[in-house]
Amino acid sequence: MLSRLSAGAFKKAASAGASRSAVNGARSASVRFASTQASGSAALESVLNSRAALATATAVSVGTIAWYTHLYGNLPFLGEAHASHLSDEGLHPQAYPWSHKGVLDTFDHASIRRGYQVYREVCAACHSLDRIAWRNLVGVSHTADEARAMAEEVEYSDGPGSDGEMFQRPGKLADYMPAPYPNEEAARAGNAGAYPPDLSLIIKARHGGADYVFSLLTGYQDPPAGVEIREGMNYNPYFPGGAISMARVLFDGLVEYDDGTPATTSQMAKDVVTFLSWASEPEHDERKKYGIKAVIIFSVLTALSLYVKRFKWGPIKNRKISYNPPADKTH
């Protein structure tokens, strides 16, 4: 009913009410209260039909759509046309049975050691490993003596010394892995404009993780009919777009493992991917052990709390309230 009134009527009534309440506040308040009570449904209707309700509903729907599109990119159930082809996304890698795949499985550290050898002899020619220091290898894939010996083979620039000049010194355990190029520009200049990414976190940084990197390393092949690959590029169906600057690098017998494992292409790829998985997640083994502990402890605590709840609530849930009516004394 109120909604049928014009805005002017509202204003008039409000000013009248205000002047009246100035005279006798208590009475006008009680009067207004009574009238509101009497037309409850009408008041609700007026709220629902108000401009504020319309504005709120509009704001909510616009906000929801904006939030959804921000999160997921587009609205569902609306058809879309794409100019791209599925191959632009790259072939999805298949899931491989990694030795560290299960929730209770540690890395295969012999594989990490072989993978480090592959990285050092093959990948390190172009790819840096900035976030791994020599000391990180100790107790994971190498002994302290071995790691120290490997570090000492590399010269690091340090300083300034007492004469104010930088000097060269052999590496220490605390030094990080040497990068093949001094900076990104040098790396691009040495690789026809393509920048070999740092491999420290590459397993975490790519969709498909270890499966993707393994598939990429072993997936080089001739381009299918109709696919043009520019000079200096290589075809790899797992790489988004298909054309990758890195050529196939792993060939059978490229490295010689000191534990006698045959160095096939897939063996080397598996080992280097295991090594890079470790580089991405050095905490992996410890983390899974803590996971076991946490699951056991929290399962016991959950069971305990459920039992205590039932124990405490048992009497309350099972009690019976009986009512004995008083004897009728009128007769």
């Binding site: 295969d108 012999a110 899974k288 076991i292």
Partner: peptide, 16 residues
């Protein structure tokens, strides 16, 4: 837990 974990991952860890 460590005993179980080491048994489960026998031969894979560095100490092995």
């Amino acid at each position: 837990v460590t005993k179980f974990y080491d048994a489960w991952n026998k031969g894979k860890q560095w100490k092995d």
